[in-house]
Amino acid sequence: MTAQQIIIIVSFFGGIIGGMGMGGGTLLIPLLTLAAGLSQHLAQAVNLIAFIPMSVVALVIHKKNGYVTFGKTVHIVVLAAIGAVGGSFLAKYSGGYILRACYGAFLIALGVFQLGKTIKTAVENKKSQNSQSKRGRLIPPSIPNS
């Protein structure tokens, strides 16, 4: 398999995860470094660039549906942009291994956060389902719960 094919395949996989709204490009970067052999810096740059067309399209769709709030969020956008300049220069002057190890730690933290969120949502859904079935008697009492 050529390097280009590997990159297309891992990006396709990263895109699936992103399209499901889970973690976005967070898994694309390690896939690019581990499977396609890119340097940590280059993988991060690729992820940033690949995200631009996707988010433009998504933003236009959300704007049409009226979900994008401009006025109240200007200060957030501006402050985040300032932070991004600092973060990018910090990455530029960091060594590949440092950046990679920090990224690993960041990924572990996000994974734990995602795990907690998923379990919490599942428990809440189950609770509301149970209370609904009790109230509406959707499940006859004679059928045992498996």
């Binding site: 490009g25 967070t26 970067i29 992820n47 300049v85 950046l99």
Partner: peptide
């Protein structure tokens, strides 16, 4: 974070 890690 986004600038340093290139996403997330």
């Amino acid at each position: 974070v986004s600038g340093f890690f290139g996403g997330g």
